[in-house]
Amino acid sequence: MNIFRLAGDMTHLASVLVLLLKIHTIKSCAGVSLKTQELYAIVFATRYLDIFTSFYSIYNTLMKLIFLGSSFSIVWYMRYHKTVRRTYDREQDTFRHWFLVLPCLLLALLIHEKFTFLEVLWTFSLYLEAVAILPQLVLLQRTRNIDNLTGQYVFLLGGYRGFYILNWIYRYLTEPHFVHWITWIAGLVQTLLYADFFYYYFQSWKNNKKLQLPA
């Protein structure tokens, strides 16, 4: 464990807690993409399949349970909670996210480190996580009025992957055999997708005006 990875995990934890807090306290999910949340639930479900077979550390297992629990409860809130579901703008959140799942699955069947069931699904979860934010970014551009909690959620989510890139550089420099191109490229693509959001987020923060993404 290094400081970059810890910072990344804490930022990731903060992003899901910010979202859960928003949905639970104001009983609204306006501006949140259910598609992105469903993709994240699939990402965690396929990434943490080894939670029962391989134990690494208390921290590792605890965080996996928190991420699984939070992502599925956010989906549950947005789909089934009587008050929250009414605030979900279904007409705007129209990204065909299943078109993201299939190519990621095919790519995982083609490019992976080992051709085993767990490894292919784990690789699939990496590819899917890289693109899971797309429905949310599209929704933000459509709804234009980004309330600061949703903006913070996306910002923290992008920041977590940015910290992970620093973690991979650190581990590559300090651990001789630590080379994982698939993880690195997927993580880099993911972080790049946030790049323009970060640019507009900082612009709005610097000029102290409402965050507006270009149409």
Partner: peptide, 10 residues
Amino acid sequence: KLVGDTKDEL
């Protein structure tokens, strides 16, 4: 392999 593996990452 676990040491150098990313499986210890979330």
